[in-house]
């Protein structure tokens, strides 16, 4: 039996060419910034997102699409409900590679 549709969700996938994580926008395009994602509320909007996913996958723009259930509330930045999605959104929690990469990551974080 299919899982019930989440009451609040965004559509995510990976860009088929680059593998980048992407989110579906209200402008019917993909973005790498979840803040720009179209938030579907209720079963009808969630189903519309899934319909868009099917079309986009069929046109080979993305791969592995699914809905991410979001926490309730009106946060400016959508916050996933599940640990897996929180981690996926955040990216690796460790610096890439060994010492020099670690130093670069620290420098980047400082600059940001």
């Amino acid at each position: 039996m299919a899982s019930p549709l989440p009451t609040k969700a965004v559509l995510t996938a990976n860009d088929v060419r680059t593998g980048d994580i992407v989110f579906w926008t209200a402008q019917h395009d993909w973005t790498t910034d979840i803040k720009k994602a179209c938030v579907g509320k209720g079963a009808v909007e969630a189903q519309a997102l899934l319909d868009a996913a099917q079309k986009e996958e069929g046109e080979n723009r993305v791969v592995g699409s699914y809905l991410i259930a979001l926490q309730a509330g009106d946060s400016l930045s959508p916050i996933p409900l599940k640990l897996r999605e929180i981690r996926r959104l955040a990216g690796p929690s460790v610096p890439f590679g060994l010492p020099e990469a670690k130093a670069e990551a620290k420098a980047e974080a400082k600059a940001a």
């Binding site: 990976n14 791969v63 897996r84």
Partner: peptide, 9 residues
Amino acid sequence: GLYLQLHAY
């Protein structure tokens, strides 16, 4: 050997 993982291929 090409997987689709949590963030990328």
